[in-house]
């Protein structure tokens, strides 16, 4: 049911798995629709805009793919991003009198973001893997904590990066090489590394084994707690990197920074064909999932046939559709 053989009887062994091609076909269909609706769709400006905006969610979603593949879930990434952004801005502003506005402060700020991401990920990971609390509960808790912390740091308002600093930091989001902006480059590099780690290293294989059957993994001398914790730490690191790209875009952080990032990241992972219950994950699928989600928003903005306010509704339909397709595979087994 899930596979369709090609017409030629000679290539009977060659079967096409719709689950593999499904997300790609959906992406191609969206591109075709975009081209049809608006000739500007394929313009350089629009494409780079879509890709650059996808990069934050995309970077986070790569890490989320590992967490979900290993049977976990992380609801805290959006709040975590907001908190790290706030922390980063506070530290950088505080250092201006000491170090003077310059690249040095930005490097310190980046270090803060990465260390904070690692620590936040480690807290989630250790609570889940060592203490044994369900990932949903742990990250629901930390989600509330980080969101509340950033609101408190900003005193209910907005934390703004010093204006002099913004000018120096700006190129990290708006600059790039050969017309490709940094967020796109970083996203691409992380996606490629992620795909290699997932498919070709012991770590990736262990994640899939744990998500597939934790007991089997344990009996096969896989260090389950360590691998689990590492998936959360890796996700925290990637959230830190996403924040480094995100802060120069607006130069500020508030209680509404990163809202719903976690849901978009999880949705991208699921649309890409990774199983929510764990055991199977693919990074390229996640990348396709991220692109599908941003293209929907982009197309709605470019046409006036459907109100952009319905963006969420259409994304919701796509997510549910993706899961329905996933389920058919397990039924037909």
């Amino acid at each position: 049911m899930s596979t369709a053989t090609t017409d030629s009887p000679k290539s009977a062994g060659w079967s096409i798995d719709l689950r593999v091609l499904g997300p790609i076909l959906a992406l191609l269909a969206l591109v075709a629709l975009g081209m049809f609706l608006n000739p500007n769709f394929l313009s350089y400006a629009n494409i780079t805009n879509v890709l650059a905006r996808s990069a934050f969610i995309g970077i986070v979603a790569v890490g989320m793919t590992f967490v979900i593949t290993a049977g976990g879930l992380d609801l805290s990434v959006g709040s975590m991003a907001a908190f790290i952004a706030g922390l980063m801005i506070l530290v950088m502003n505080a250092l201006i009198p000491v170090m003077g506005a310059g690249v040095g402060i930005i490097l310190v700020g980046m270090l803060v973001a990465i260390v904070a991401g690692l620590i936040a990920g480690a807290i989630n990971g250790l609570l889940v893997a060592k203490i044994g609390i369900e990932a949903f509960i742990v990250t629901l808790g930390t989600m509330g904590i980080y969101r509340s912390l950033v609101t408190w740091l900003a005193d209910g308002g907005t934390l703004s990066l010093d204006f002099a600093m913004r000018e120096i930091y700006r190129p990290v989001y708006y600059g790039g090489i050969m017309g490709i902006s940094w967020p796109i480059i970083v996203f691409a590099v992380i996606a490629i590394l992620g795909e290699i780690v997932m498919r070709h290293t012991a770590f990736g294989r262990h994640c899939a084994a744990i998500g597939s059957n934790e007991t089997v993994a344990r009996y096969s001398s896989v260090n389950v707690a360590r691998v689990r914790t590492l998936t959360f730490i890796g996700l925290g690191l990637l959230v830190g990197i996403a924040v480094i790209m995100y802060v120069p875009r607006l130069g500020s952080a508030s209680a509404s920074t990163g809202v719903l990032w976690e849901l978009e990241a999880i949705a991208a992972v699921i649309i890409g064909g990774t199983m929510l219950k764990g055991g199977f994950g693919r990074i390229w699928g996640t990348v396709v999932g991220v692109l599908i989600l941003s293209l929907i928003g982009n197309i709605l903005n470019l046409t006036d046939m459907v109100s952009p306010y319905l963006n969420g509704a259409i994304q919701g339909v796509i997510i549910i559709l993706a899961v329905v397709l996933q389920r058919k595979r397990s039924n037909s087994r």
């Binding site: 294989r205 899939a208 007991t215 089997v216 344990r218 199977f280």
Partner: peptide
């Protein structure tokens, strides 16, 4: 506890 039923022989053998 012994085998990953959804996976192939190769993944199981070398785990």
């Amino acid at each position: 506890a012994g085998l990953l039923l959804e996976k192939g022989m190769r993944e199981n053998l070398t785990l």
